[in-house]
Every structure is written in structure tokens, then in C-alpha cells.
Write a protein that binds this DNA or RNA. Structure first.
Ligand code: SF4
Ligand code: SF4
Lengths: 144, 144
DNA sequence: TATAAATGCTATAAAAAGGTAGTAGTTTAT
DNA sequence: ATAAACTACTACCTTTTTATAGCATTTATA
């Protein structure tokens, strides 16, 4: 596995919101569109709000909007918030007490691969996602 | 997260066996050395045997040895056996039905990062791990 | 002002992953 | 014969993750 389901849901939600044009997104609407379980989705949205990615408004016609500019949110931040900062940094060999100065044969290649992944998550913002989506729409290319 | 705990255990066990000099490894000995829960370890060892990585011998002085050459076993094979072949291949955005010909903005960077990881797992065999270990030992470098 | 439609909070349930226990059996060195 | 090892099966327990439920609160609007 790479990410757990909750993180995947979060990526899906934010990705969807970033590429669509609604002013506000209610949990119910997102449930309809994304088929994420209702109540779980609601809790996750509240969570994303607490983490500062979204802003919620209460009451009738309430819902969720982004709390920051799209370019201020990248995927690494979301992963960090939901799984903790060491989600991708622990040694996959499970040797908790390896000698730092003299790493095992896997270490360098592993770190390289992992860095690549973190880099990807860090360098891609919701704004990037949106731009690409807009370009594809303009070209009449079916897209997510 | 990247790998689940069971896979991590498997990596630890095989890595340990590959770098040590015993002729045979009993479950009890591995438990002592690696602190992996006894019964869970035993089940995992049986599993690794069924998957063809290890050979077991019954009876007193029995235990586990590799079923193949060390260079014939890489980490991707182990991951594959324990988590299934799509462990690292699903889309982390969770869009199950994205349009293949017109991927989203994340796709290329994501595929690159993921490939890097799969490459690492595929290109590193237990023999590589062992070699590095031997070199470090020869140089009196403390190592795993 | 009552109501409907929304989120917030907290408790609980269900499912999956990780881990333990028991029992019975088989194999093999000593 | 016995002890030390693995095999198989079953059942159960614990923790984590995923999912549901009930009630409270907020707000637009009829
Ligand atoms: S050297 Fe690196 S890859 Fe090897 S056990 Fe330590 S942290 Fe893991
Ligand atoms: S294009 Fe690639 S990254 Fe984007 S949703 Fe599809 S599979 Fe995922």
C-alpha cells in the first residue's frame, strides 16, 4: 500500500473541489459526486477544516470552501496533516536502530526513491491540478 | 504509510537471514534476534515458505533456509507475494475511473516517483544486501 | 417564528490488521 | 523414547481504520 484510504479520500475531495467551479461544496453534494460514505465524509471535511485547508460555513446554504489559495496547498501538506510527518520517512526495512553513519545497501536507493515521491507530493499544488484540468477542458479532452 | 507491518517484518527477516552465516534459522532464534511476535512470526515464516522464498526442514534441528539463490530474491517479489501485485500501482488520487489517454496533472510525476520506488525494490536483491554487509564487516564498520 | 438544510461533536459499531492461544499431528536427531 | 523443531487448523483477542448514529448548533428563508 502507499496511502491509506482516508488520505486518498482527502486527495479526491480536494482535487475535485479545486477543479470545479462551485462557490461552495456541501457534504451532501460531495457525497453524491464522489460516493464517499456520508458521515465519514462529513467528519473528514470537518477534519480538513480544522487543519486549515477548508473553511466551513454553518447553517442553510452552508458548506465548504478553500481556506487558502489553491497554490498554497500541496499534497504533501495534506498527507502530513492526516498521517503525520513521518508517514513516508520511516525505514521500510523495519530496522529501527540502524547505524546512521553506515547505512545498509538499500539505504541510498531507497532514500532516492522516497525523496522522489515526497518531491512529487510537495511540488504539486491544487493550483497545478486545476490548471491542467482547465487546459484539458479547453481542448475538449475528457478528463477527471 | 508505505508498507504494512507484515511486509516490513518479512523484509527484516529475509534481510537478517541473508546477511548472517547460520546454516539454518529456527523460528525461535529469529524471534530472539528480531523481537517479532512468536506466533505471528511462525505464521509468516510458513507463508514465506509457501511462497517459495524459504525451505523448511522438519524435526529437531529443523528450521528455515533460503529456497533459492540470494540473487534470485528481490524486494519487489516479496512485496508482490505478501500484498499483491497492485500494492504500488493503484492511483493514489483515488479516481478509479480516470481517462487513461488524458491523465491528470499529477499523473506523470506520480508515475515517475512510483516507478523509482518499484525500480528500487526490483533492482535490489538479497545478494546485494549481503555483499554490502560483508564489505562493511570487513572494514570493521558497525552495520545492521 | 417555525422549518429545513447545513455543519459540529461525541459515542458507538463494523471491518481489517496485527497478535495470542490451544490442540493435535509430523518429522527427525539424539 | 524424548525433545525440538515445523504444519495445520481453529478460535479468540487487541488495535487501528473505516463507517454509522444521534443530538446539538447555526442560518436562510418561507
Ligand atoms: S540504512 Fe536506511 S534502508 Fe537500511 S535499515 Fe537503515 S534506514 Fe533502513
Ligand atoms: S491520471 Fe494518473 S494520477 Fe491522475 S487520477 Fe488518473 S491514475 Fe491517478
Amino acid at each position: 500500500m502507499i496511502l491509506n484510504k482516508t488520505t486518498e479520500y482527502a486527495f479526491t475531495i480536494l482535487g475535485f473541489m479545486a477543479t470545479r467551479e462551485e462557490e461552495m461544496y456541501s457534504a451532501e453534494y460531495l457525497h453524491d459526486q464522489l460516493k464517499i460514505p456520508r458521515r465519514y465524509l462529513r467528519r473528514l471535511l470537518t477534519d480538513l477544516t480544522k487543519h486549515g485547508f477548508l473553511k466551513s460555513s454553518l447553517g442553510r446554504n452552508g458548506g465548504f470552501v478553500f481556506a487558502k489559495e489553491l497554490k498554497e496547498i500541496n499534497f504533501q501538506m495534506v498527507l502530513n496533516a492526516l498521517e503525520g510527518s513521518d508517514a513516508l520517512t520511516t525505514c521500510f526495512l523495519g530496522f529501527s536502530c540502524c547505524v546512521v553513519d553506515h547505512p545498509c545497501v538499500m539505504h541510498d536507493t531507497w532514500v532516492e526513491a522516497r525523496s522522489k515521491m515526497i518531491e512529487t507530493l510537495t511540488n504539486t499544488s491544487l493550483a497545478d491540478l486545476r490548471e491542467k484540468y482547465q487546459r484539458d477542458i479547453a481542448k475538449n479532452i475528457p478528463t477527471i
